[in-house]
Design a protein around this nucleic acid. Structure first.
Length: 812
DNA sequence: ATTCTGGAAAGAGTG
DNA sequence: TTCACTCTTTCCAGA
């Protein structure tokens, strides 16, 4: 901890600065402080464990795991975050409050935001405790179905045809996302990716803050206080009806389905709520950039930044694409801890009780309830298990937002996925019946175990559906976890909603060695059009069909803090078709090879055909292919699940540093697998390690790791390279491919740049662009790698300079 | 009667 | 603008 402390201080500083600068920023800290304070009380009340209380964030955030694990002293990152986290919060809070005034611009906003944030965070509370408290009425339909909150609200006025799904309009979304990515990079916090997770005061602000009249607001649209009231309301309804009833872009209109009812009901009112999630995305990118390293730290900082950004965003607003902005704003929610200005404690529950219609509406988004409700109305679980036993840790508002990157292990603890889920699982729509629980590839179900926990107190394992792209792990906007019950389900679970994300809470019992079999989790697909209309949503759903199961556990620490660990599964393809027809590479026996090639590489996955071709591609930063080479495949050895290919020689036999390329399996026209990463090594250079180990790990490890940790590219380098500090070198050398992961993550060549590429693009620009020749090209790799690898560094490589993140950034 | 599943139709989106 | 093909979403039917 000591080391951490130092870090903490560091973080604090940041926080302060931010705070001082922005109210929002301040707010963030405050939240924390509040949260902490408030939490304490709050939790107790509920069922929460004492442990969970306020400290949680800090700890978690601090990412004890990360900082601690990796290196006691994480300078910046986690450690700082962690340490600072707590303290930071307090301090900040203290300051803040006083400063509260500082909020100068819009104190309310801050407050609100906090609230909002809190709520979000507190979601747990809400979910757990609050829910009970809160009248169903408030919630939208308590039905299990997810309600899309305010489609209308989300819709931009600009959008001509509400119906059309954003995806189609991807441009916008993309643009926004890209922009966010690019533009943000270092520059203004606002834009910066950082915003992402944390704090998202913005969101709150906007909504609450109306006063400000954030530029964003306009974008956001109506959300403000009362969605319904808002001008849009009318629109809303229309939209609702139209949108909702009919599927947005698609067939809806044509087909008449009966779902409308539900949606409508929910709709208008809810609308205001921004989607918390949304934020992550944008931020993600940024995060990646920035600091991957500092997941936590960053988070704290981010929060601060977000706050700032929020404000700024307003200013910038004009310049920034709507979507981008929205996103930013939205972020806040997710991250934000909800703290209420006044009632810190309240933050947790109090609010719930209070709502006046209007207020409620305004807060809704903030409140988990609001958010959630709008989004997902989760049936409340009458489950008992949670209460009695479960520590209810979740409740604490201080818990890290779902888009925060957390380590999979810290100190003696390690959260590990013992059995990975199958790479394919057809998600079901709300209009369909459940398609069952996610299964393991070998039969049975995935399982997760917390190692190193010797206490007798049971814990709660959280599960939510996360993204599987090259960017930072975050809740997937288009998929939600779906609780499965029935005779065949042996694992009890409880649903909760955090920032619009459904979270399945599963007990981790000492008697079961803190192991849980995940046979109670299905995957629900939300209509792209609905989600894309959400405010702040920058991602498009089209072809965005891969997800990961993300597991989290919050471990109470003796010092009162809570340590949060997170692990993500390997990617899961959730679409019907692709899962059946597209080739999928899950593993590759080699991650790199000398430029001479000739080496055999075994690919394992699905849908391989004798006619399958394996194409190696080197892409330029701009995405176009510089080089393509079909690898020879051994048809005799080809099986549906495995393919043996001979690595082709690289076009340039004289490379002096590793060059990352991609390859994919092609079954025909558009039936291509995701890009896989592969690295060509200089002929005379000692091989770093091409084989199995990496492959393996990457695949598996990466999945998880990336999941949890930060996706930042930098880390990767550090980790793998552990070597040289030089940025440049790192980049180059660093690029070790993370094969497997890549497979899942990278976008198909043909695929629209948007989704997948988004991530890549950003990276490329940020990283590659600048001067790294090949490296630049490798780009995606960087991003990808980073993500994958990062984790390791954190957890695994304590020694590594982890926090290189900064390095990365700087390099550029 | 439900829950899972696999399959596929219908229509919108993409290039 | 048209066309072929892809992708999404909803239905259907059987286990």
């Amino acid at each position: 901890m000591t080391g951490l402390e130092a870090d903490q201080e560091f973080d604090f500083d940041f926080l302060f600065e931010f705070n001082q600068r922005d109210e929002g920023a301040v707010a963030a800290p405050e939240h924390y402080s509040y949260a902490s304070s408030s939490i304490g009380p709050g939790l107790p009340l509920s069922t929460a464990h004492p442990s969970l209380p306020a400290p949680c964030h800090d700890l978690q955030t601090s990412a004890p795991g990360i900082s601690a694990v990796a290196s006691a002293s994480h300078p910046s990152g986690y450690g700082g975050a962690v340490d600072s986290g707590p303290s930071g919060y307090f301090l900040s809070s203290g300051n803040v409050r006083p400063n509260g005034a500082p909020a100068l611009e819009s104190p309310r906003i801050e407050i609100t935001s906090y609230l909002g944030l809190h709520h979000n965070n507190s979601q747990f509370f809400h979910d757990v405790e609050v829910e009970d408290i809160i009248p169903n009425s408030k919630r939208s339909p308590s039905t299990a179905t997810l309600n899309l909150p305010n489609l209308e609200a989300y819709r931009d006025p600009s959008c001509l045809s509400p119906a059309s799904s954003l995806s189609s309009r991807s441009c916008n979304s993309e643009a926004s996302s890209y922009e966010s990515n690019y533009s943000y990079p270092y520059a203004s916090p606002q834009t910066s990716p950082w915003q992402s997770p944390c704090v998202s005061p913005k969101t709150t602000d906007p909504e609450e803050g109306f006063p400000r009249g954030l530029g964003a607001c306009s974008l956001l649209g109506s959300p403000r206080h009362s969605p319904s009231t808002s001008p849009r309301a009318s629109v809303t309804e229309e939209s609702w009806l139209g949108a909702r009833t009919s599927r947005p872009s698609s067939p809806c209109n044509k087909r008449k389905y009966g779902l409308n009812g539900r949606q409508l009901s929910c709709s208008p009112h809810h609308s205001p709520t921004p989607s918390p999630h949304s934020s992550p995305r944008v931020s993600v990118t940024d995060d990646t950039w920035l600091g991957n390293s500092t997941q936590y730290t960053s988070s704290a900082i981010v929060a601060a930044i977000n706050a700032l950004s929020t404000d700024s965003s307003l200013d910038l607003g004009d310049g920034v694409p709507v979507k981008a902005r929205k996103t930013a704003l939205d972020h806040s929610p997710s991250v934000a801890l909800k703290v209420e200005p006044a009632g810190e404690d309240l933050g947790t529950t109090p609010p719930t009780s209070d709502f006046l219609p209007e207020e409620f509406s305004s807060f809704q988004h903030i409140r988990k309830g609001a958010f959630c409700d709008q989004y997902l109305s989760v049936p409340q679980p009458p489950y008992q298990w949670a209460r009695p036993r479960s520590p209810t840790s979740y409740t604490s508002p201080s818990l890290p937002a779902l888009d925060w990157q957390l380590p999979s292990h810290s100190g003696p603890y390690e959260l590990r996925i013992e059995v990975q889920p199958k790479s394919h699982h057809r998600a079901h729509y709300e209009t369909e019946g459940s398609r069952g629980a996610v299964k393991a590839s070998a039969g049975g179900h995935p399982s997760v175990q917390l190692h190193g926990y010797l206490e007798s107190e049971p814990l709660t394992l959280q599960l939510f559906i996360g993204t599987a792209d090259d960017r930072l792990l975050r809740p997937h906007a288009f998929y939600q976890v779906h609780r499965i019950t029935g005779k065949t389900v042996s694992t009890t679970s409880h649903e909760a909603i955090l920032s619009n994300t459904k979270v399945l809470e599963i007990p981790l019992l000492p008697e079961n060695n803190m192991r849980a079999i995940i046979d109670c989790a299905g995957i629900l697909k939300l209509r792209n059009s609905d989600i894309e209309l959400r405010k702040g949503e920058t991602d498009i759903g089209r072809k965005n069909t891969r997800v990961r199961l993300v597991f989290r556990v919050h471990i109470p620490q003796p010092n009162g803090r809570t340590l949060s660990l997170q692990v993500a599964s390997n990617p899961i393809e959730c679409s019907q078709r692709s899962a059946q027809e597209l080739p999928l590479v899950e593993k590759q026996s080699a991650a790199s090879c000398p430029v001479l090639g000739g080496k055999k590489m075994v690919l394992s996955g699905h849908n391989f055909l004798q006619d399958s071709k394996v194409i190696f591609v080197e892409k330029a930063p701009d995405g176009h292919h510089i080089w393509e080479m079909e690898a020879k495949t051994d048809r005799d050895l080809c099986k549906p699940n495995s393919l043996v290919v001979e690595i082709p020689p690289f076009r340039n036999q004289r490379i002096t540093s590793p060059v990352q390329v991609n390859f994919y399996v092609c079954n025909g026209k558009r039936k291509r697998s995701q890009y896989q990463h592969f690295t060509y090594l200089p002929a005379n250079v000692p091989i770093i390690k091409t084989e199995p180990t990496d492959d393996y790990e990457p695949a598996l490890t990466c999945g998880p790791m990336s999941q949890g940790l930060s996706p930042l590219p930098k880390p990767c380098y550090s980790q793998q390279l552990s070597m040289p500090p030089d940025p440049g070198s790192c980049l180059v050398a660093g690029f070790p491919p993370c094969p497997q992961r890549g497979s899942m993550m990278s976008p198909p060549p043909s695929a629209s740049p948007k989704l997948h590429d988004l991530s890549s693009a950003p990276y490329s620009k940020g990283i590659a662009t600048p001067g790294h020749g090949h490296l630049g090209l490798q780009r995606p790799a960087g991003g990808v790698l980073a993500i994958q690898e990062v984790p390791r560094p954190v957890g695994a490589h304590p020694g590594s300079p982890q926090q290189p993140p900064p390095t990365l950034l700087q390099p550029q």
